[in-house]
Write a protein that binds this DNA or RNA. Structure first.
Lengths: 227, 227
DNA sequence: CGGGGGCTTGAGGCCACTCAACGATAGTGG
DNA sequence: CCACTATCGTTGAGTGGCCTCAAGCCCCCG
């Protein structure tokens, strides 16, 4: 008998945050609700899609990888967002907790059964999928045609809409995550943020530079010359 | 025979093919079927989405514009493809005929009514929307993370799957369209194709260089190091 | 306090872009 | 039939925006 002692959990090259930290790997179960520690995987690409998820607290990144490790984050999900809704039986992306995150679970099978008889639910599923599609379409425009400054400006505006607390953006994700979301390198993201800060359009609070104040939303919007 | 009513359509900055050619602007109606001449608009962004379309022959491009004219083509639709399926009442993109194109029409209202009572149809709508979403997700990876050669290789492989006739790709779209689909400039697309041709991976037939022979699919796939 | 991770900043390089010229083709009108 | 023109595609030369590589700072956390 030959045992595969090779890598149990592959430390992938994009997030080093879990390295050397033997944290809780198994999610914490509580009825139809799970809590994932920072950087833990919720599901992987090509794994069976048995559940649909709703973020209760925290943040999730959904991404695809190329074989050589290049990563594209397709979406971030924050409080209230629903994700993991696939059509086939397999997930098309990997989902990870960006920070400690609690999600609500829905058995996919239940959805299928109910949606067969319940037209309203079927429509609701369609609406959610469509809103994901709209986001993807907008993001293709960003990835294909916008400059680095425009991408970062668009990102700040998007996050401002989705997770602002009293004018302060508390970004849960790292510069690397932002870069992989925007199709840039982390240094480029950092430079763009510094640039906007020097222009007085935004400011940083705290030393970690993950809290951002939007000083001039008007001018920031000017950098993202939307469709 | 057809009436050629001279009515100047809007010459947008990306396709000059209709300039100076006073073709039929109004689609040719035949029951629930329409024919659009090359470069004519099928619907515009933010226009009411009253119909869903299926391509019977020809090809369609769907795109978004930035205010300064930069264009991102989100998808091409060829024979059999369904497009124009929106959730809200407005289209999120513009759709144009790449070449002379015939489409089948479905009243959107009918879909709504039927899908209310017919779970099977509702599921079908969901499946189509999901397949569009899958395409968009794959395309985000391409736009955010692939090199020019990889993008062009992926494009040829995609088109090969979708519209090959006996090993010859008859591309309906111009280099500019390809570029705007791949997030590149047309010169870059041309260079990449020349490069692949010099490597003996593909060849051109005819002078227009829109007919492509795939000589070594294996090697071409090697250039697109998929997820 | 020492180590490590995350963020910033600088210097230099490269890939894709810009600008430009050229060839080929198809359509037009004399 | 042959200019003439407009469009499309290719190719070259040079530029520039983002990337690469590297150093340094700060904070967190042992």
């Amino acid at each position: 008998m030959l045992m595969h002692i090779t890598s149990v959990s592959v430390p992938h090259p994009h997030s080093l945050c879990e390295l050397g930290i033997p944290t809780e790997t198994n999610p914490i179960v509580s009825l139809s609700q799970l809590t994932y520690r920072k950087c833990n995987k919720i599901y992987g690409e090509k794994e069976p899609a048995d559940y649909v998820y709703q973020v209760k607290s925290g943040a999730v990144r959904s991404y695809k990888l190329l074989r050589d490790g290049r990563r594209q984050i397709g979406a971030f999900y924050v409080s209230g967002d629903i994700f993991g809704l696939e059509n086939g039986s397999l997930h098309r992306s990997t989902a990870e907790a960006v920070v400690d995150t609690t999600v609500r679970l829905i058995r996919r099978q239940n959805l299928d059964v109910i949606s067969g008889s319940d037209g309203a639910l079927a429509k609701h599923l369609l609406r959610m999928t469509t809103s994901n599609l709209k986001h993807a379409e907008d993001h293709m425009l960003l990835l294909g045609r916008k400059t680095s400054i425009e991408r970062v400006a668009a990102f700040i505006l998007e996050m401002d809409e989705r997770l602002t607390d009293a004018g302060i953006l508390a970004l849960p994700m790292s510069r690397r995550d932002i870069a992989d979301y925007l199709g840039l390198k982390l240094e480029t993201v950092s430079r763009a943020l510094s640039h906007l800060s020097k222009l007085g359009i935004l400011g940083f609070i705290g030393a970690t530079h993950r809290q951002i104040v939007l000083l001039d939303r008007q001018q920031l919007a000017g950098f993202d010359r939307q469709n």
